[in-house]
Amino acid sequence: MTAERREPDGAIVSTQHLCVAFDGATVLQDVSITLAPAQVTALLGPNGSGKSTLINALVGLQPVQHGTVELFGIPLGRFSQWQRLALVPQHLPGASSIPVSVWETVMSARSSPRRRWRPIQRSERQLCTDALDRVGLLHRRRDRLDTLSGGQQRRVMLARALAADAQLLILDEPTAGMDAQNLQVFVEVIAHQRELGRTVLIVTHDLDDIEHLIDQAIVLEASTDQSVVFAGPPPLPPSMHHVAHHHHETPPQGAASPVVAVDP
């Protein structure tokens, strides 16, 4: 009977032959991946290769056509231990109709049907305080979220996910358009999560700053029989460098000079 059970070493996330399509177009084809406990995984690939779609499929926000998703060894359809994962979305919170403070945003990570019937605990407030402190924005907790810069708002959303105190942290392009100072906070947070033995899945276009923290890299590509074209520890094969290191490519010969010509 137990021969049927397939729990790959207590994988935190695993998919088998996952296929996702929307509006008739296949976005993900035959994706089988595994995130082991306490591993940091980078999910890479050009725009349109389905990185965000995969993330959404993993957390049940995107219907799946074929294949299976298991979270903590439980099929997604029966999964209910949502307190074990936290998601940092790709989009910024955006301008809000009603003022929402930084503190309220982080505190919203603690909203859950499980905690419906009891008041907010002191330990939960402490989690939120620690999370904001870790991203260096505790002093802004009373401010309106939309008065912060884009990079700072991303840090608040990261703190929000940290406040969930979850075993699995999923970050969808958290560093897009971020300056060096904000980026440094992210790198430190991921390093700390790794030390804590948390499992991290991070969608990114740029491995340069975090490559030393990555245990596994997964590269997706659009319109292939198998969306996953690479899965394993870094470094990536040279043919795939463009999906992870494009910010630091040397310009090809004959490209425009870095000195900007100014019309007289």
Partner: peptide, 21 residues
């Protein structure tokens, strides 16, 4: 009883869903 979940949904329904709301 439900105010915190209502707030989470108002803030971002997708994230709220991944919290089990």
């Amino acid at each position: 009883v439900f105010g915190r979940e209502m707030f989470a949904v108002s803030l971002d329904a997708q994230i709220a869903a991944t919290q089990g709301v």
